[in-house]
């Protein structure tokens, strides 16, 4: 299964880079989201895949050997939330940019004055 998911990660990265190289700012933002997702999945996979055994501890003792590693999950959780912050802010910025310049073309960003 790891191989299949690794391919998924690769495809997500390919799509995100392709989108980020577009001139349209909207596509750029979508590319950003894909990149964030791909990276989250990559970090998540690095812990190994453990189906059906989440990181829950019973009061009476330490859990079994096969339990999923909680640390990458904590990292990814933070990353997802920060990713949301970035995307939302970029979207708002893009909206303002369009409002001021009336274009969606990144190449028009060369001038500093609107």
């Amino acid at each position: 299964m790891e191989i299949v998911l690794a391919i998924v990660v690769g495809v997500l990265y390919t799509v995100s880079v392709y989108l980020m190289l577009r001139r349209s700012i909207l596509k750029f933002i979508i590319g950003l989201i894909f990149m964030s997702n791909a990276t989250n999945l990559l970090v998540f996979l690095s812990a190994g895949l453990v189906p059906g055994s989440p990181g829950f501890i019973k009061p009476e003792g330490v859990a079994a050997e096969t339990m999923a590693d909680p640390l990458p999950q904590a990292l990814v959780l933070t990353a997802i939330v920060i990713g949301l912050g970035i995307v939302v802010f970029t979207l708002a910025l893009k909206y303002k940019f369009f409002e001021l310049t009336g274009t969606d073309d990144l190449d028009q960003l060369k001038q500093t004055d609107s």
């Binding site: 392709y18 690095s46 190994g48 590693d69």
Partner: peptide, 20 residues
């Protein structure tokens, strides 16, 4: 360019699995 980047990321993912 995207494909070259994506492919290397696939390999890196495979290497990264179970690094722990």
């Amino acid at each position: 360019i995207a494909l070259v980047f994506g492919t290397i990321m696939t390999f890196i993912t495979l290497k990264a699995i179970n690094v722990n």
